[in-house]
Design a protein around this nucleic acid. Structure first.
Lengths: 247, 247
DNA sequence: CATTAAGATATGTTTAGACAATCCTCATGG
DNA sequence: CCATGAGGATTGTCTAAACATATCTTAATG
């Protein structure tokens, strides 16, 4: 990216480190195992902590994958899930269209009690039982998304969920056809990975994630699902076509 | 948020730290200066590094502001820039509608040479001169967004920019009325703050930012502007209404 | 009274090291 | 040949400390 605020573009040691790391990654074939952290730190003349800090941003961009006990590997930039967000679609649908593979990893279906926010969302009493479906989605041999849906018990039979769930609550609802769905209101933000999500996604706690928090509405206006989806940034490219507003 | 993958919700020391910090912040009036990092670390029984790591996520949520040499302050959650992204509007327009104050801080207008990407974007030869407008936007006494627009020299007179620019290239283009604008194609992602952006936004390098990278098109289909906007997550709530797709 | 400089305070960055947790390889035994 | 366990390799987390940088306060001087 050209242009910057600092008139004197003198490179700090950390920026030099970033550039050198970027060069090393660019020069390595996908699948390459990089030197160990202690070795790389020594080569680049920085401490292991400083190197790790720099590596985090490359991992966030999907250029590296680090595996505890195994090593650090360069990732090929092939399977990016690219889609517009004007239309709500499941990851499976997007994958199918892009001819990419995605699968559901670890998952969990449980019953929870509505807290104040959920009670308000579904217009039920606090403490009402809700279904919570949590899973990790995998592509290219790693976890790339952590998804969680909360929905009233009567919206999807628990039995169906337990027997046929393959990763998308939305697809199940669409296939089932009732209630008929109308729209989703989705909030978008960047978050620092909470410990539990980080563990599930095999990243460091505190790493950068893109999060969509959404309410799904039926035609009759009632909320039928509340979801939180955490995406590893380097594996997704979301975009939106925007009309021009009038000030 | 209820529900989690770990069946045994035993709290790790770091999670305990996060909870305690969250409680402390919630219990403090906006504007409160927290104990110094060494003191707080001692009180919470962790090292200063671990405390700093935990504080980063609160700063990302806009709950804290840290100022080098001055201290750490609790932030009141009042002025969140909330808007749909179906329509492209400047921060000033959004602020005006929400009755929030925003102003332009440090800015820079310079001429740059088109690299390969920019040459392709604007359909010009590599090396062609382009204008680059970079600025930091302030609200509530702090930097909350780092914005950068790149545009061909003939789209906006440099003189006009230098004399009347107050923060929004979009608003200038709309007021000028030519070329007539049609739409913006915006990519959305979460990024780890690069050093220069971090410095401008007064955050730690590597912190979480929401980034929009956009191409603005005129009615005749030509690209008239390419921009990158970095947003401090806690100060913005972007949302989108999504139609339901068919798998 | 205003300005400036020095000292104190506090966050930002870097380093080194220790230990925990995970993964991989190799040797051994069934 | 396969399973298992031990040991080595490597990343993840935490700690302590040092130094850089920024801010604030206070004292001295004009």
């Amino acid at each position: 990216m050209a242009g910057h605020l600092d008139k004197n573009p003198h490179e700090s040691p950390y920026q030099r480190l970033q550039r050198q790391l970027g060069d090393l990654i660019a020069a390595s074939e996908p699948g390459t195992k990089l030197p160990t952290e202690p070795d790389l730190a020594a080569q680049m003349g920085v401490s292991r902590s400083t190197l790790r800090e720099a590596m985090r941003s490359f991992e966030a961009q999907g250029l590296l994958i680090r595996r505890q006990g195994a090593g650090t590997f360069v990732v090929g930039k092939s399977g990016v899930f690219e889609t517009g967000i004007e239309v709500l679609e499941s990851l499976e649908t997007i994958a199918s269209r892009l001819k990419l593979k995605i699968s559901m990893g670890e998952s969990q279906i449980e019953t929870i009690q509505a807290d104040e926010d959920m009670a308000k969302c579904f217009e039920v009493r606090k403490g009402t039982s809700l279904l919570c479906v949590t899973r990790v989605m995998h592509a290219e041999g790693r976890s790339i998304a952590f998804l969680q849906d909360i929905l009233p018990r009567d919206i999807l039979p628990l039995k169906d969920l337990q027997e046929t769930f393959t990763g998308s609550v939305l697809d199940m609802l669409i296939r089932r056809g009732k209630p008929p769905l109308e729209k989703s209101f989705t909030e978008i933000n960047a978050v620092s990975a909470p410990s539990r999500v980080a563990r599930a996604l095999e990243i460091q706690r505190g790493d950068v994630l893109l999060m969509f928090e959404a309410d799904l509405f039926a035609l009759d206006g009632s909320a039928v699902d509340h979801s939180r989806s955490y995406f590893l940034p380097g594996y997704f490219r979301f975009h939106v076509l925007r009309k021009i507003g009038v000030p």
